[in-house]
Design a protein around this nucleic acid. Structure first.
Lengths: 94, 94
DNA sequence: TAGATTAGTTTATTTTATAAACCAAATTAT
DNA sequence: ATAATTTGGTTTATAAAATAAACTAATCTA
């Protein structure tokens, strides 16, 4: 196979950034991710939900200092998918 | 900057494959690219045209053995864009 | 208590990707 | 000779994705 399939869920700038970030920090708040990725809240909300649907991240909603807080954590499946994606990418980069 | 911008023109599985391929072979026929990338003719036609609009590839149409032949060639701008894209990608992969 | 801020979600719009339909010429089969 | 099929595509229509804009709900601040 010349070019490997690129998981469409990860082949999105924002979702890739989110997963990449979560792999390095394990857990992060919505607002932190938003800042680091320069995403708009709406876009981030949508994309994080897709990652959740896919089982790539886990989302916990709670309150912190009276404000709602959305926490995101990468799952084993998410790490696996990311590694696979990077491997597939290699076939395009040589 | 945490995550660098990914040129949307290259951040597409098919267009990335086309550019990657053209960088390695310099020039290729439409049908050859189609086979190597497993793309449908319609999709390939559209995507190659976008790369042309962007000045990333050059397209030559001629006849060969009585049949129309579409030749694609990478441009300096295309190579430059690819290298930049790969560099930007690194910011997501570590 | 009116206005602004935080932390999001939902809906609408735009952009992309993909599939389906089409075209013209050439070839093959009848 | 002509009907059907194949080659090499393009164009148009549809589906999916990304993004922006609008909205919600609670809190804080002047």
């Amino acid at each position: 196979m010349e070019f490997k399939e690129l998981d469409p869920l990860l082949h999105s700038q924002l979702r890739l950034a989110v997963v990449s970030l979560l792999i390095s920090v394990k857990e992060a708040e919505f607002t932190f991710i938003k800042e680091k990725t320069n995403a708009t809240a709406g876009n981030l909300s949508v994309q994080i939900n897709k990652l959740k649907e896919a089982g790539y991240v886990e989302i916990t909603k709670q309150f912190k200092d009276n404000y709602p807080q959305t926490l995101c954590k990468i799952t084993a499946k998410g790490i696996e998918a990311f590694e696979q994606y990077v491997k597939a990418l290699q076939s395009y980069l040589k």
